[in-house]
Amino acid sequence: MGSDDRPLQGGDLIRRHRLSTRLWHWVNAAVLVVMLGSGLMIFNAHPRLYWGQYGANPDPAWLEIGNDGAEGYLRVAGAEIPTTGLLGVWTGHDGQPTARAFPGWATIPSTYNLALARRWHLTFAWVFAVPLVLYAVWSLANGHLRRDLWPKRREMRPRHILRDAADHARLRLPRGTKAARYNILQKLSYLAVMILLLPGMVLTGFAMSPAMAAAWPWLLDIFGGRQSARSLHFVFAAALVLFFVVHVAMVLLAGPVNELRSMVTGRFRLPPERERRG
């Protein structure tokens, strides 16, 4: 934002994220930690996943984390992967081997306590769901969704998407004025998170609630049963973790100080254009 009328260029400081985006971002960052940690603890109470309306120990599980004595394993769709030390059996705080699915360093609380994990999960679920609805409404009202996130027709051309993917793969991130707006891969991943994964977490959560499934029986139909909803809750959570890992990696690659500042103060310095060669 130069004071003169010259066009925007690399090195300029621009206003990147509005207050609602910054607030929602950091609330979500905290909520993700609590929901993931307490969610993994809840999973430990019954570390098996099923498809369909019902599913318990006598029924076949498509995913199971368990142990044969001192050997931890992860069974997915018939394949068995040894996971001793990480999943199934791991070393607890006391130095003793602990036979639980997810290890204490990843769960809230760090020792087995289903009741306490549920309190965390079902309280912070409100801190997750209410701002999600508010932000969705606000993003529709203020044009954020339409202007900043919704892909333009030309951006959706396969050639454009492929070129952007190739640039990302070579870690040639946008610079100069191009960095002032989200690129197509960013738009698609943010939209997938906002429109599919986050509402998907809330709705699969509702489908697992016996009271909500009574009030809104269509929840059981769209997910194919309560145990399918529980499986999808886990799959969506894994997808969110994947998003988180890539997101943090991209922040580190794009310049963590500038990126963090933009999400705290809203101001973002456009990375200078590359020197043209030859």
Partner: peptide, 26 residues
């Protein structure tokens, strides 16, 4: 962060004022 959560989860005031609100709301 997780150790901090362990601590908070043991504190009676945090249990009463924060962790029980989910049940109240639900």
């Amino acid at each position: 962060l997780l150790l901090g959560c362990d601590r908070l989860g043991r504190a009676p005031s945090f249990r009463d004022m924060v962790l029980e609100t989910g049940e109240w709301l639900s």
